[in-house]
Each structure stands twice: as C-alpha cells, then as structure tokens.
Write a protein that binds this DNA or RNA. Structure first.
Lengths: 256, 256
DNA sequence: CAGTGGTCTAGACCACGTG
DNA sequence: ACGTGGTCTAGACCACTGC
C-alpha cells in the first residue's frame, strides 16, 4: 500500500527542478519511517515491520530499507535485534534507563536511586523557557521540581519545564505514585518520546535554597546542567535545569 | 597485494574452531586498515587508496571494503569526500581544530584564542598518571602546563601529562614557537594521532594559584575536566586536567 | 523449521571534483 | 572524459531466535 517515492523516470524539467532538492531514496524512506514513528504507528518497545515487508510496502529493495533503518538505529531511534526484528527505542528497559543521565559514581558501583517531587505547578511560560520550547509567552507550561538521591544522598536538584498543552493532567500526585524514569512516564502516559538532547554545563556556587535541599554549604561548587530535550522532528519538549553535587559523582563524556 | 583474510572455503573442522571467534569479513578488513593507519602507511591528511584498489588488494568486493571504511568514517578516523577520495583524519584543518574542545562562548561568536606555555618538565610519573597512561611508576612523563585565553581573557588552565618515551625533545621552547592546536603538533612532530577521548567533569572551587593565573577570586566555581586521550588501538597517550572558567563560556554536549 | 536481521557479492548508474 | 565515492538493486548465504 501507498506512495512510492519518486526518483527516476522523471521528465527532464522535473528532474532539473528536483535536482536542487535531490535526496537519495533511502533518505526519503527514512523520512517516511520517521513520520510513522512520530504518528505513533509503531509504539516504543514494539517491533516495526520486517525489512522485506517495508521494502514491498515502499516498492524499493531491501537494501534501501536497510540503509534507512541503519541510520535510524545509529541515532538510537530504532534498535535492531538479530533474529527477532527491529524495535522502537524506549526509555523503559533497564539497559537504557539512564541513557540521558551522564552523572556517574566515582567508584563505579551502581547506587540506589530515589526521587522526591518537591513541586508541580502550571504557570505562564517565562520568556527564556518559552523561547527554548518554541512557545508564545502567554502559553502555559508545567513547572516541576524534584530531588534525586543516590544511596540516600541528595545529589541532583532538577527544575523541569514542559509544554502545558501536551502534558495535561500531570500533577505532583500522579508523579509521586510513579516509580521509574520520567522519560518512560512521558512515553506511556503522554505519547512523547524523547529522542535527543542538548546540554550546556557550567560551574556555579550553591545558593541558599538549593544548598539546603542538597544538604551542602552555601557557596559549594555545583554543576549546572541545562538540558533541552527533543522528540521526533526536532521539536523541543522539555527544558531541564539541574544542579549536580559532584562530591562522589562526576559527569562523564566521550569525545570522538 | 597480500593476505586475503580467511573466511570461506575452510574445511569443517577449521570452520567449527573459528566459529567461536567468528568475525565478519568487513571487520577483518577494518582491522587491517587500522593496522595500516597505526603503522603510518597513510599519514594524517593524506588520501588512502580507492575502494576498488583496496578491494583488489584484499581480494574482497568493493562493498565489503566500503562497509569497513563506513565504520572508520563513523568513528572519525577517516573522512570521505565524494569525487576526491577517503582521507586520514587530522587535527590540522580549521574545520576540526576544536574537535575535542567543548567549551563554547555563550554568545556564539568565535573568540580569538591564545596559548601561553607556563611550564614544561620531565618527571617521574605520579602513580595516578602512570596508571591512566599504562606506564610503570618509574617511567618518565612530560608535564606541561599552559593557559588558554579567549579574547584575551584567561579561561582554561591545563595540566598535561604525556609519556616521555614517545614525546622526546618536547620543550617549553619548541612549544612556545608553535602556533596551533597541540594535537596537530603531536601528529606532525611525534606521529601520535589522538582519535578518541574520555572526560570526567566536576565542579570545583578555584584554589590560590589557579585562581591567580585565571584572574578569578579564590573560591570561584570552576569546571574541572579530566581527559584521557587515546590513539589507534585504544592506547592512552595523554592525560589532561583542565580548569575552565564558565563566566562567559559553557561546556556543550549532545545526548543521543 | 521458518522468519528475522547480518554479511557478501556483482553490477549498474548517479553526483562530484578535476583535468 | 575520467576517477572518486554515493546510491540502488537482486540474489545468495549465514547467524540468531523461537516455535
């Protein structure tokens, strides 16, 4: 069923017009797959159709589908499992639970983590948040504050902003009852898959309230991590400002 | 010319023995290419032989060579340029000069950068450095300190450790005369290509001497970035401890 | 055993860079 | 016009998973 992407056998005029916007077949297929993912045709954790099936659906060769899937897998949107199929990435699953959390214990031992919701309100978007989330200043956002502890030690204080129109019904209560990563909740309850994020990191002295919540002296150096998370189509869906205590933890990063 | 990697047409016994250590042909080719890079058969910035030439040399199809090169390109060891060839990655070239430097101006304007060598000595390796560099405690290392300024403002204080046996003849003098990224110098003068690095980041208060050199008050929160850089074959070749002033700059990172 | 993704091949044609 | 990497195809066989 459906639209075979146009590539060859086009008259010269069309060819010429298209040449500026030339895009390889597999990129077009990739785009179609992205649309299906965005549309929710295949849910996180589910298998997508096999390569042969997609090839016949799009009327291209298996190799072309494969290359499209290869790129999506490289971007961690899909997950290939030999002999089983190709699956939509999800924030459930122990293996990738901390996909976006780069704070790591110095001694390498996995800590016991706990989350405490401090606050959850709906407010008019501050200008800087509105800009980052592509909203108008009048729009409503959910502002969420929470404290993460590792081995009972308060370590991360997060200030989170979400578009209110998408995250209806998100309350401190529903959050407190929930166990697990926020991004997994966003997926199953609000259909929002976080796919990519950008972080800006700086060093900052702990002010009074954060210091108290994190149990450190005012003036203690902390990491300030500002994260913007994106769904399919590079649409920003979350702003998160975190303060990290780096006494027994560090932020790890790989450069290639 | 030379060794075709063994894959097919092997008797059953050998086949079975190899099955535990089964490795796809293109991975074997990738290994051979890596050896050639490590051996310096193709220097940074130079083109490697064309895909067809490599295919005939290794007695495999072009597609297999292509897949090997694809992976090396994805790891930034090689650089493909359509119509021209495939090139060995280099730290010369304006485009990738700051490949490993994640500190970015808040306002996005490229600053004018300057480097000042503070110190360059050869000493016995401290235990922690020796461990990180896979050296014995008795081995000699080069210890290098420098101050980076952006738009004349002191911003990064680096404490750098290099294996002395590799970096012979590296002196404060030769460094002061050199303009450009250190990694480019390492490449052309010492044949060491840095290919990958791991960083550990924490927040830390500026102590007396660093504070003075960076022109900030003692106690000012700084980013402390510990980097270990690796050459081909994942051999550690540099430890770098940097202190970053994040007044007008931030450390940027992308999460996938 | 059947179905999935993974590897490997051979060949055709396209886009790009350089003479 | 030629050589490079880039795309696309068709088909064979392999390795892994689950019934």
């Amino acid at each position: 069923m459906s639209d075979k992407p146009s590539t060859d056998s086009a008259p010269d005029t069309e060819r010429a017009a298209a040449s500026a916007a030339y895009s390889p077949l597999y990129q077009q297929i990739k785009g179609l797959l992205l649309q299906s993912l965005d549309r929710g045709e295949w849910k996180p954790g589910e298998a997508i159709p096999s390569e042969l099936e997609l090839a016949s659906r799009f009327q291209v060769s298996q190799g072309t589908v494969r290359k499209a899937i290869d790129e999506l897998a490289a971007e961690n949107l899909l997950l290939r499992r030999q002999g089983k199929g190709t699956f939509v990435a999800t924030h459930h699953e122990a293996k990738v639970r901390f996909r976006f959390l780069r704070l790591t214990p110095d001694d390498g031992k996995q800590p016991v983590s706990g989350s405490q919701i401090l606050d959850c309100r709906r407010v008019k978007a501050p200008v800087d948040i509105a800009r980052l989330l592509d909203l108008r200043a009048a729009d409503i956002v959910v502002n969420l504050r929470r404290l993460l502890s590792f081995d009972q030690v308060p370590t991360i204080l997060d200030d989170i902003w979400l578009p209110g129109s998408v995250f209806r019904g998100l309350t401190a209560d529903s959050l407190s009852r929930y166990r697990g990563p926020l991004y997994a909740l966003f997926e199953s309850e609000y259909g929002v898959s976080m796919v990519r994020a950008e972080e800006k990191i700086r060093a900052m002295a702990a002010a009074g309230e954060p210091a108290q919540l994190l149990g450190v002296e005012p003036g203690t150096p902390l990491l300030q991590v500002e994260r913007v998370s994106y769904t399919y189509g590079d649409r920003p869906m979350e702003v998160r400002r975190g303060l990290y205590v780096t006494e027994r933890f560090h932020y790890r990063n790989s450069l290639n």
